[in-house]
């Protein structure tokens, strides 16, 4: 069990760091920019929504008061400082460095959690006589991505702050049900004995989407669609890369156990 724990935690730690790094480069600047739209500081259709601005805002929050350039007017910079304090949902990680540190912490926690579940699943498969190599490990990682990010995103698209959405609890329940159904469905589709078990797997994969995710009542987002679509695509890509690395690392470390 020690070996299961240590291989999962090391893989999760590395994957979490990678995830945080990719987020800082690709995703977080968009969240910060979206919050400025949410707070009413920026308005859709008023220009200013150029990537340069997002990058500067992120750079600014990462490095404190110095390091910003003249790309963003001074007035905007001041707003960026107070943005987290005024953000109604808190986003309350406080100042830039603190916020970055918390993202690293929670990325590591999340992927350590996923790593533990993944290695437990691999151990279970091993008990059932299913042998897993590096290729299978990566596929298991990608399956984790499907179960915990991609398939839930099919119904509940990745949303930026300031995007209207359906009832919070209903979304959480649907998300959890979809993740569970996808894990079970993938298992039966891949390892089920006989046509009926495999068919049941496919039914399980489709069921949450046939049922349907809770939907917002209308469109009313304050964030420009270009920003939202870039965020959705990038957050999914970051998740996919992270999960593939997690699966590959986890299986490699877990299998490194001496054979007897």
């Amino acid at each position: 069990m020690k070996h299961m724990l240590s291989s999962a935690l090391v893989a999760g730690f590395v994957a979490g760091l990678l995830c945080a790094l990719l987020q800082f480069l690709l995703v977080q600047p968009e969240i910060v920019l979206a919050e400025r739209y949410e707070a009413g500081e920026l308005l859709h259709f008023q220009g200013l929504a150029n990537p340069q601005d997002a990058a500067t805002a992120a750079d600014h929050s990462a490095h404190g008061a110095d390091g910003h350039t003249a790309v963003v007017p001074a007035e905007e910079i001041t707003h960026a400082h107070s943005e987290e304090a005024t953000h109604e949902h808190g986003a309350g990680a406080g100042s830039g460095k603190n916020r970055q540190a918390l993202t690293v912490l929670f990325a590591v926690l999340t992927y350590c959690g996923y790593g533990l579940a993944l290695v437990a699943g691999m151990n279970l498969a091993d008990q059932l006589g299913i042998k897993l190599g590096l290729a299978q490990g990566i596929l298991w990682g990608l399956s984790g991505f499907l179960a915990f990010q991609m398939m839930p995103a099919l119904g509940l698209q990745p949303d930026l702050p300031g995007t209207p959405a359906a009832d919070f609890s209903a979304r959480q329940v649907w998300w959890l049900a979809t993740a569970a159904a996808t894990v079970a469905g993938l298992w039966f589709a891949a390892y089920g004995g006989g046509i009926w078990q495999r068919a049941a797997g496919v039914v399980l994969l489709a069921a949450p989407h046939v049922w349907g995710a809770p939907e917002a009542t209308g469109f009313g987002g304050v964030v420009p669609p270009e920003l939202a679509s870039a965020f959705a695509a990038r957050s999914l890509a970051v998740g996919m890369i992270t999960w593939a690395v997690l699966g590959g690392l986890a299986v490699t470390l877990w299998r490194s156990e001496p054979a007897s």
């Binding site: 969240i31 309350g92 999340t110 959690g113 990010q149 990745p158 998740g239």
Partner: peptide, 30 residues
Amino acid sequence: GLTLVFAAGFAQSQGLHDAAHDMRHSTGFP
């Protein structure tokens, strides 16, 4: 593992929500 994921992604305490905010958005947790 699942407890960790739940704490990081789902628990609704304000403190946890605020701390995990960016990570929750970008990994697709509600």
